[in-house]
Design a protein around this nucleic acid. Sequence first.
DNA 1: GCGCTTTAATAACGCGCGTTACTTCCGTGT
DNA 2: ACACGGAAGTAACGCGCGTTATTAAAGCGC
Lengths: 340, 340
Amino acid sequence: MATNKSQRVTMSDVARHAGVSRTTVSFVLNDKPGAAIPEETRRRILEAIDELGYRPNAGARALAANRSGWFGLITEIVTGPFAGEVITGAQSRAWGDRRFLLIAASEGDPAQEAAALDQMLEHRVEGLLYATTWHRAVTLPKAAREVPTVLVNCYDAEGELPCILPDEESGGYKATRRLLDAGHTRIGLINLDPAIPAAIGRREGYERALREAGITPDPSLVIPGWATADGAYTAACELLDRPAADRPTALFCGNDRMAMGAYDAIKERGLRIPHDVAVVGFDNQELIAAYLRPKLTTLALPFEAMGTKGIDMLAALAAGQPLDTHQVTIDCPLLERSSV
Amino acid sequence: MATNKSQRVTMSDVARHAGVSRTTVSFVLNDKPGAAIPEETRRRILEAIDELGYRPNAGARALAANRSGWFGLITEIVTGPFAGEVITGAQSRAWGDRRFLLIAASEGDPAQEAAALDQMLEHRVEGLLYATTWHRAVTLPKAAREVPTVLVNCYDAEGELPCILPDEESGGYKATRRLLDAGHTRIGLINLDPAIPAAIGRREGYERALREAGITPDPSLVIPGWATADGAYTAACELLDRPAADRPTALFCGNDRMAMGAYDAIKERGLRIPHDVAVVGFDNQELIAAYLRPKLTTLALPFEAMGTKGIDMLAALAAGQPLDTHQVTIDCPLLERSSV
DNA sequence: GCGCTTTAATAACGCGCGTTACTTCCGTGT
DNA sequence: ACACGGAAGTAACGCGCGTTATTAAAGCGC
């Protein structure tokens, strides 16, 4: 078995067991092009590997090859519903390049963020993904410039780092368009905090869809809410209590939690969804959207796709290739359920 | 700056710049006990490190010290609401030991699981955490025996590996007890699939609390449901449509999604929560529990604590210490909101 | 038999660092 | 004068592997 003290099987053990040199083992393990290994020898080596239960030491390999095989991913919170999707997307894509993901959470604390970044750099990540929970501007520590970095769901306040963002405008457009197609003409928008990119973009899309349909947007139908179920409940009440002829027959909500509040307001008034009032949410938080009754039609934030695309871009950057686009936006798919 | 081709600053660069040997640099970096380094020299070295922007190479360090510094964490799905909590708990605890977490998802696919495990072993993880989404028995690939392994939220079908489980029985007891304390005597239990540990344990706790209060459990008040909002809705209807004198005044639901369904059934009948019917959920899925109206009182599965404890145990095992307990259970805290 | 090319394999170096064993210098006691 | 001991520091080896240069053997034509 292994002769070294750590009791782990090394390449030398394999070589000895197969009666060849360590170099030869390395060659077959890496399919070294240009190395002529007769089938018989290769077989003996593979057999030895199998018999000894040899596993290459990824760390040693990285050191020798000067290629860590790591990409780093820093998120704010791992607990949230979104981070997981980014991880999933990034992880699966990275796997294809035989690379691993180093994940850390900043928990919104700059000190932790810096510490995480340090660790990543010490581990010689070949690229860094930085993802936020909600779409906004960020400023990274300078250390992040030491390695190719791509922002996910946020953009560089200094405008230098490449980023990947959800297409909020098109999302707002699609939601509104869906409601228009269902015959609605008075569509209320219970929006997020009007200062954030998501609210701005979605409202633009909302208004574009209306205009395209020949409807002049009515500002009184747009209520900026707090992003809570209660806030949306209040906002929905306000809209639904307008005189019947003036009352919206559809509500487009800033997120699914807010849609939850809207549901309550609607049901309270004895109105039925979607028959009397149709509802579209945003974010596709499965736990809410798929379990509300009726199930909620909503737009998904493409976190998984953004994670995948992020690794795509990192891989390109790490390979020294230039980026075709500095800022890419990704579509928010509409998920049809039963609330329209 | 760096003289090697990879353009990265190494310890040798620091040594040269500070006018000492590489060994000395290593000594100050590791606070080697027994090494007498005068303050002046130490200062010079730290200065050099700072000026050159040197970062130790974690991989090389791991190789030389024969200590990878990795713990592995395999989950089924990263996307779910629970995996994130386990990660958070494990990550923060591992940090204290200056260790990093290697995270991979099996996506429920044995092949992916095996591949992930392989990768972890190649990275020489010093311990492995294996976490599942729901409490159940599992069988790990043999390869997992190569390294200290602790199961989280599941237990070894062969009974060999140590595990950490939520205390379902005490959870069921506490939920029921809370309802009893609020004056309820007819408490319905809309349970999960009766074959799984969570359903069994919680029902036991439920019955223990009832007996303790001098109430004989009424089997007809226990409905095994499917773990969906719709299933629970149907079950709740059945319970609520019993003759008034016989109708439960409180419902204990197998999870928060099911509580959502129960809410609908209750509201539909013009009953008020918690005035006419009190509800307790399970799982504390924030997105549901905190946004239902009224907010849902529920029990939390202690995923974060389980993750932390997992690393605790791994650290002990990795240090060669024996485990005091082979199976530890962790309490499910009751989160009081407004539905009781 | 001799040179030449191809095939099969190896010795040796380096990746960046931890660590052990060893050296050198200086002050102290007798 | 010499031995002794501690302080300050270094040379050298090894961790497990990738890679380059080099060697040894085999095949081939003449």
